[in-house]
Amino acid sequence: MTVADDVKTVAGAKDGRPARSRRWTSVAAALSLPLVLLVVWQLAASSGAYSTAQLPPPLSVLEALGELGGDASLWTHIAISVQRVLVGFAAGAGLGFLLGAVVGLSPGVRAVVAPSIAALRAVPSLAWVPLLVLWLGIGEGPKITLVAIGSFFPVYTTISAALAHADPHLVEVGRAYGLRGGGLLGRIMLPSVAPAIFSGLRLGLAQGWLFLVAAELIASSMGLGFLLTDSQNTGRTDILLLAILLLATLGKVCDAILGLVERRVLRTHT
């Protein structure tokens, strides 16, 4: 019997254009819109319709970067914010992963725990701030906790839902071939929901950044959120815009790094 003729060609493996040139095309496409916005920004700022206090031109934001970057303060703001996000995200995503797995796997636990967690999730991020300040003071504790709260929910929600609906056929195969408990979870269930796990982590990281700014806006003397309020109070719109651009860039870089890990892990996956 010949089997070679049964083999399907792998979809997408044979494409005329080399991968490198396609990647540059997509990078160029992604950068085109920011460039257009930059031009529009420049035109709007130089049209005279807005004062420089309302809308400083792009160049003065660049100058603000040079000014703040010259002394170490800008890097301290960035470093402390990144640190808060990473520590808070690790704690929140870790807890979300564990609780999501337990709730996803056990209908009993789900019945007891899931409705309460769903109710907590409905609390707006800023509502936690007074309570956290009251309980944890004004140090790093409340900020990291708020980021952790932000990261927790997307990870918890996606993982509990994905595991509860893991392919029953594959789970049954695992059982039929002698896997139980941790072995079944590690070898069949988690790999089968790996794409959902990664989208949960990416959502959690993005929400961590959102909650970071909420934390730093309120009670803080460092960080990019503090830079936002401080520049507003001192009328430095250029620094305010710089802080927003830095938040966008850092958020995007964090997501891209996680996306790279995701691509590597899922490359062999489907």
Partner: peptide
């Protein structure tokens, strides 16, 4: 419970898509 002396082949192959064919056989 699951009997180690039995092995099942289902109507669908039910292979783990993230493993190679050899990796799937290794499950048995």
């Amino acid at each position: 419970g699951i009997d180690p002396r039995c092995a099942v082949v289902f109507q669908e192959p039910r292979l783990l898509p993230w493993r190679t064919l050899a990796g799937n056989v290794a499950l048995g």
